[in-house]
Design a binder for these strands. Structure first.
Lengths: 171, 171
DNA sequence: CACAAACTTCACGACTTCGTGAAGCGTATT
DNA sequence: AATACGCTTCACGAAGTCGTGAAGTTTGTG
């Protein structure tokens, strides 16, 4: 009977994976990396072989291969190697996961800023188009600074939240 | 001779449009809306008919039709109607353009948060996966608050920048 | 009232992208 | 040293998406 419960858990897990992956895709992530990230985040284990992920998500090992490479490249997954085994282990280093995720986002924002700054150079600030571009560039810079600041403040804020809740539960 | 210069300007403009549109696409925007937005932002006029955009970008009116509808829907473009003409006018209300753009982004972030919160409900916080999800949710909330705050501060910051530069040029 | 212009909608063709299946390669076991 | 296992790469088939061309609709003009 315990199997039935486990299978139910697995189904709810996979449903959530699909739902969360959809949001990630809308934010620009490719489908398979989105699924792998969602799965690694929500499943209870904290280290997975490629085979684990393939079986857990019920997709081909080939799909996993590409997905984890992309995730490793952007720093959302870390590849580890246990001596005496032939499988790589992928671990979701959740301690600074989202700070790292946001760092990638900040790089994107930087590219925005560069592209717009290039446009300002090309068009000059003495024309309406150039002025709009310049203001856009300033906004990007402002926003990027604000986000970088928030990312930096996050660890302390997280610890504060944890302490607060720990105290609340204890009381 | 002025024609040659104008054509050169037009070419540099279109090159910039392509470059900036590419960045916008990487951020999740559809190709044609990205081009239209980049063009409307960088070109010197501040109101365009659909025909202006089609000719300016050298694409079919049909492509413009879908693109402007999407841009109007997310609030990046405003549709206006001059009495006594048969064309709608699309204006890029640049005063609060980026605040509005960020509001849409904040909505996306809210969907993130909702999806993750749903996962926390499904999985419970007494399991490693659920705990990771809960921390993710908290991070999303924290980041969203920081971004909302930044968006709110932007108008004042922009005016401050403008005043500063105006003074700098004068000195 | 008829005509003309502009935009919109629709359906098609081209392109890109995604995930699978099969073959190849590296690595530990025996 | 040979074998078996797991991952990776490659090429293919399928699905979704994008922009064009043509027809239809609405709106202003003569």
């Amino acid at each position: 009977m315990s199997t039935a419960g486990d299978e139910g858990d697995r189904m709810t897990l996979l449903r959530f994976v699909e739902r969360f992956a959809l949001v990630l895709r809308e934010a620009g992530m490719a489908p398979m990396p989105a699924r792998v990230l969602a799965y690694a985040l929500a499943d209870d284990s904290d280290r997975y072989t490629a085979g684990d992920l393939a079986r857990g998500l019920d997709v081909s090992p080939a799909a996993i291969s590409g997905a984890v490479r992309q995730l490793v490249q952007v720093g959302l997954l870390v590849r580890e190697r246990e001596p005496g085994t032939r499988s790589d282990l992928y671990v979701l280093d959740d301690r600074d996961l989202w700070s790292r995720f946001m760092s990638a986002e900040l790089a994107t924002l930087q590219r925005f800023e560069d592209a717009v700054a290039g446009g300002v150079e090309l068009l000059g600030q003495d024309r309406p188009g150039g002025r709009r571009l310049a203001e856009t560039r300033d906004f990007m810079a402002f926003l990027r600074a604000a986000m970088a600041d928030a990312v930096q403040r996050w660890p302390a804020e997280r610890d504060r939240l944890a302490a607060e809740r720990g105290a609340g539960v204890g009381a």
